[in-house]
């Protein structure tokens, strides 16, 4: 098992956002997490990545045999966990290349591997930028600074491709992408897909799931996974909206 979340409760400033999440993700799998705005999808992603603003009040998270909650955010990344942010932040003065060079070498150091030399590294960048059709001029630009919404998302997938993670969490990477970009991004993700890794896609739209076909679809609602199913569940949601699930949930809790 690559990821196992058990009864996760988390709150921020005293507000409980996650109210008992259980989720298992095995190698080679793709999971989609859907759910209405504000249901806690990004919160879950942030907690997995190690954002410190949240208080974990209950539950545990196991990642590749390790207690994830005991790892610093950078060590989680070095252990192969990658988050494509819903809102990638701008970092003026730090070029994409510089960030990735530091990241790749820190990760390699952690794993006891030799640092890449400049030539090997540039080769890696070129290869991966082709994969997501990212113009090379983005390599020398400051991280996300002045990027359009879609460019930021594509840049996240580019970084993912370079870092080659074990567990990739994509938080609404599809929103803001035009149709071509969506296909390119999906292609990038599918190329990465293997039996040695897993992908969790957070999305609002079935559209992306036409390209990245999930093994499981989960619905997160009010801090809980209220329904899980196969890829057909996404189609059903697209058709019916969330109301029937909300109603079901309320009936259950009533």
């Amino acid at each position: 098992m690559l990821l196992e979340i058990k009864n996760l409760h988390a709150s921020i400033n005293g507000n409980e956002i996650l109210k008992g999440i259980d989720l298992k993700v095995d190698f080679g799998e793709v999971h989609a997490i859907m759910g209405p705005n504000g249901s806690g999808k990004s919160t879950l992603a942030s907690i997995l990545a190690g954002r410190e603003d949240y208080e974990i009040t209950e539950g545990e998270i196991w990642y590749n045999g390790k207690n994830l909650l005991e790892l610093a955010p950078e060590d989680r990344a070095r252990e192969g966990l990658f988050l494509a942010f819903q809102y990638p932040v701008e970092i003026p003065g730090v070029s994409n290349t510089n960030l990735l060079k530091t990241a790749v070498n820190e990760i390699r150091k952690y794993r006891g591997e030799e640092e890449l030399d400049a030539i090997e590294f540039l080769q890696l960048l070129k290869e991966k930028s082709k994969l997501v059709n990212l113009d090379e001029k983005f390599l020398s630009r400051s991280v996300n600074e002045g990027f359009s919404g879609g460019e930021k998302k594509r840049n996240e997938i580019f970084q993912m491709a370079v870092l080659n993670p074990k567990l990739a969490i994509l938080d609404e990477t599809d929103s803001g992408l035009d149709i071509d970009a969506l296909r390119i991004v999906a292609n990038g993700v599918n190329t990465l897909r293997s039996n040695e890794n897993a992908i969790v896609v957070v999305t609002h739209y079935q559209r992306l799931l036409n390209y990245i076909i999930p093994d499981y679809v989960h619905v997160l609602y009010q801090g809980k996974i209220v329904k899980s199913g196969s890829k057909e569940l996404a189609l059903e949601l697209e058709e019916k909206g969330y109301d029937w699930i909300k109603n079901q949930t309320e009936e259950v809790s009533a």
Binding site: E74, A77, L83, T102
Partner: peptide, 22 residues
């Protein structure tokens, strides 16, 4: 910004250095 860099495998101190050097 620091968290973003952490998430890419870069420690807090290195993240500050990266930003400052830029």
């Amino acid at each position: 910004q620091i968290f973003y860099l952490n998430q890419r495998g870069i420690s807090k101190e290195d993240a500050v250095n990266l930003i400052v050097n830029g």
